[in-house]
Design a protein around this nucleic acid. Structure first.
Length: 139
DNA sequence: GCCAACGTTGGC
DNA sequence: GCCAACGTTGGC
């Protein structure tokens, strides 16, 4: 199993909206970036991801699970763009802020900081454990 | 609101 | 295939 990070502006698609979808899950649509799309194509059912609020919030607020493999993005006719579906697993007990992540020397290589504009990024197993611990949340 | 980083586009 | 121009993202 691999780990990922999904970024969303809470004004457009918030964690609350994701939680409201429950087990039905939701298409992670609207991605128009090749690297992010390629990451989604590599995902498998059951892969886990962090849900990060960019702009407003700037914190990791929850854990999601991939529940549908990459398929055409229903919000465009352009066949270049695919996306996966994700469903809520659990909310973070304590959201982990970008500032906390930057302060932790163990996380200095994290994709969230190194490639801040990439909206779907890989997370290492170590990073996964560390961030869950910082959030007082079960991995 | 500004600006840095970076991806995309299009002329040559 | 290079590179300038432009658009977007996201932190501050």
């Amino acid at each position: 199993m691999r780990y990922w990070l999904f970024k969303s502006e809470p004004d457009k698609w918030s964690w609350d909206a994701q939680v409201a979808k429950g087990d039905a899950g939701e298409e992670w649509d609207g991605i128009r970036n090749y690297q992010a799309r390629n990451n989604m194509r590599e995902m498998k059912i059951g892969d886990r991801g962090f849900f990060y609020h960019s702009n407003a919030g700037k914190d990791i607020v929850g854990i999601v699970e991939v529940c549908a493999l990459s398929h055409p993005d229903s919000t465009t006719d352009d066949e270049r763009w695919d996306c996966v579906d994700i469903k809520t697993v659990r909310s973070f007990v304590k959201p982990v802020t970008l500032a906390q992540i930057k302060e932790n020397p163990e996380l200095e290589g994290i994709s969230l900081v190194r490639q801040s504009r990439l909206s779907v990024a890989p997370i290492t197993a170590d990073e996964w454990k560390i961030i869950c611990k910082m959030g007082a949340t079960e991995p």
